[in-house]
């Protein structure tokens, strides 16, 4: 009997720990929604900032972040997925594969600010892109590459070997097999993992700090060599650099809310796709 009550107590303790974390998360989200909602308006979403962000909206920052996300996707998705296909379908045990795995592992551990340093050195200065969308996107792409590779590879591995063998046995070439019998089943899973990675990139500040972000740039960019404003950096600036930080607090919350909605929409989409796919394909 004693151990029973001890068990109940410990379960309650664990429950308390878990709920505490959940409540903190909920509180952060709630706090930002509560304070951010009143600011959200058509004007806020579609106008340029005025008076260093104290008035007006955040359109250039929204557009900037979306462009960065698109740029990152354009660079990282094909590269990451192709790498995953190589690892899952072509790679044999050997020095090259081992090196590749080590490289991906290393890349996954590089802190985001070090990517910023690297992007500054390689894209901004050495390749002379200047602080620009392309420099920022490529930096972010390097950062999310390992996530995309690892999750895509997992999705590819999830496709049963028998599908490949069947196709090969019927005389299809390797590429035909991959294209017709592996990719169609793996693509949803590959997309999900990749989207999760890219969602993270959208919220990152450190890598874009040195490679693309502008403090104030009301116009929209004309080319990929322009600087842009970005939501995370705009929030950082509003929260820490504005002369009357308290006065622009509503704008900070509004920006935080928009950024959070953007990132979470991306994540939620990925999570939803995944759970639907899990139900659809069960081997």
């Amino acid at each position: 009997m004693r151990s029973r009550s001890a068990q109940t107590m410990i379960y309650w303790l664990m429950r308390a720990f878990t709920y505490f974390v959940l409540i903190v998360i909920a509180y952060i989200i709630f706090d930002i929604i509560r304070n951010g909602m009143p600011v959200l308006s058509w004007e806020f979403l579609t106008e340029s900032p005025r008076k260093s962000g104290a008035e007006g909206g955040i359109l250039p920052a929204i557009v900037g972040t979306l462009l960065l996300v698109l740029g990152t996707m354009a660079a990282a998705l094909p590269l990451g997925m192709a790498s995953a296909i190589y690892l899952s379908e072509y790679a044999k045990r050997g020095r090259f594969t081992e090196m590749l795995r080590l490289a991906i592992l290393t890349l996954a551990g590089v802190p985001s600010i070090v990517f910023g340093l690297f992007g500054l050195g390689l894209f901004v200065l050495f390749l002379n892109f200047g602080a620009s969308i392309i420099a920022g996107s490529l930096t972010l792409a390097c950062m999310v590459l390992p996530t995309i590779i690892v999750s895509s590879e997992e999705a590819l591995q999830g496709v049963p070997q028998s599908l490949r063998e069947g196709s090969l046995a019927l005389g299809a070439t390797k590429w035909e097999t991959i294209r017709k019998n592996v990719l169609p089943y793996a693509i949803p899973g590959m997309m999900t993992g990749s989207i999760l990675g890219i969602g993270r990139a959208a919220g990152e500040t450190a890598p874009i700090l040195l490679t693309v972000a502008a403090f104030y740039l009301p116009g929209l960019p004309d080319s990929i060599f322009d600087q842009v404003m970005a939501l995370p950096y705009h929030l950082y600036v509003l929260a820490t650099q504005h002369p009357s930080a308290d006065l622009v607090r509503p704008m900070q919350y509004g920006t935080a809310l928009v950024l959070m909605i953007l990132v979470m929409t991306v994540n939620l989409a990925a999570v939803l796709i995944r759970s639907r796919m899990r139900k659809k394909y069960r081997w």
Binding site: I29, L235, V263, M264
Partner: peptide, 12 residues
């Protein structure tokens, strides 16, 4: 979702 909250929002 928590993993998705941008770090700058948490810092803020």
């Amino acid at each position: 979702l928590l993993a998705g909250i941008p770090s700058v929002v948490i810092g803020f």
